[in-house]
Nucleic acid binder design. Structure first.
Lengths: 261, 261
DNA sequence: CTTTTCATG
DNA sequence: CATGCAAAG
């Protein structure tokens, strides 16, 4: 079973750049998209084209137009989906959907960017509240050994080898000590960053690049899109992968293959 | 002597579409531009390229970025220029410059659009105040027989033959009875719409087309860019013209040739 | 630099 | 539909 995650930075944008062509070559079972930046009424035709190819599509949109949003495409319709963290504040931005496929739970999260208005760090507290609310909510399932996968754009690079310029980015949101500590605390509670577990020391593997000219060509990137596997799922994980050559967004797709249950 | 007027809908936009190429083929003495939508610091290089070709350039910008603004290009530097209607309200939007070249006065006006926020008519009163302030200010010169030309985007079509769809636009700002009456009252005071005076009954001559697809191809337009000549200038007017094939804006250039004094 | 919205035309 | 801006990333 293959699960892909991709921050598309505007689903309408990637549609213009051949999203359907890419989608039609994928043998994934579930595709989680982040930063879709569209409400349902704005992408009726796009959703229809996806559905026409046999995908079930579940969309979650932010209240604010053109902002945030996630979508899950799956070959089978999930048995159930929930999207609320029981917080008006955290639920307003369309950042989460958690689907159940048999005994496998897949969470698709677009974790908040910590940068605020003046490029300050004012949104880091919100980001932390989002991390905590989601992983607290999943903790019972993880602790009881259930198979849970949490994919998405975490907006945090876990360690120095997960970005090309760690030294110069210690004050950049996404690699502050506070954010790294927060993410690593989650990992230490029993979640495994699948790609890193399989490539413990490899550098140069990123999932996001600034779209300033030349940056992606020089591979000056960050690995902030992750698949975290619960302790119970870990034995079934086959491989974590990154698809850095897929263009269309400032992020590339990442993913994981797991044994079917 | 040739004077051209053109609402360029963004001087930066027409620059990308070959404005300099067009300019270099013009034998005009004065070119009046409206809706330049730029402050001086935003178009330093564009202004330099114009000056390099031997034009004197005078710019008036709105306080609000990206909004309104006029510019006058001339082969000779004007003897004097004034830009204020002695009204904070009317002066804030960079809609006017009045230049003197010997005994000829040329006013370049970007008369306000009457449409307000909700596509209502809330800006019509402002538009009327602008018309009145300018023509009141020019009245002594006109009355004393001076040579005065007032060119620009009047945002009003004078009569039914000045737009392709008069019937369906009686409630559209730019062709309401109030606006037409206001403009015609000015004409009756001793200003001549040069193009119409020379082509009294000709239809199909327009200077603006909605940029919705096909509209310009079908010539469904409005003649809202005018050159008005004072009573004293009228005997020296040779011809009024429209250049509907010049592309780059939703307006085309218009103009007039007059005897040198 | 990019996507999307908004105000304005 | 198009320009230029702003917010956000």
């Amino acid at each position: 079973m293959k699960v892909i995650s991709w921050n598309v930075n505007g689903i309408r944008s990637v549609f213009k750049k051949g999203f359907m062509r890419w989608l039609n070559t994928q043998d994934a079972d579930v595709i989680c998209l982040q930063e879709t930046r569209a409400q349902r009424d704005q992408i009726r035709s796009e959703l229809a084209r996806i559905a026409d190819k046999g995908w079930f599509v579940h969309l979650v949109a932010a209240e604010k137009k053109g902002y945030s949003g996630v979508a899950m495409l799956s070959r089978k319709d999930p048995d159930s989906i929930w999207t609320s963290l029981d917080s008006d504040e955290l639920d307003r931005e369309g950042r989460l959907q958690v689907a159940r496929f048999g005994d496998l739970t897949i969470a698709n999260g677009y974790f908040p960017n910590g940068s605020g208005k003046n490029r300050d760090h004012s949104r880091i507290p919100y980001k932390f509240r989002f991390y905590e609310a989601l992983f607290d909510k999943l903790e019972p399932q993880r602790a009881s050994g259930e198979r849970v996968l949490v994919v998405g754009d975490y907006n945090t690079a876990p360690t120095e080898i997960d970005l090309a310029r760690p030294k110069s980015n210690r004050k950049t949101s996404g690699f502050t000590h506070a954010e790294c500590d927060h993410l690593n605390a989650i990992l230490n509670k029993g979640w495994t960053d699948v790609f890193r577990a399989q490539h413990p020391n490899e550098t140069g593997h990123y999932s996001w690049w600034s779209n300033r000219p030349g940056v992606r060509e020089k591979n000056v990137g960050w690995r902030i899109d992750l698949t975290l596997a619960s302790s119970g799922l870990l034995p079934d994980v086959q491989s974590g992968f990154i698809l850095p050559n897929v263009m269309g967004s400032d992020h590339c797709p990442i993913g994981v293959t797991i044994d079917a249950s």
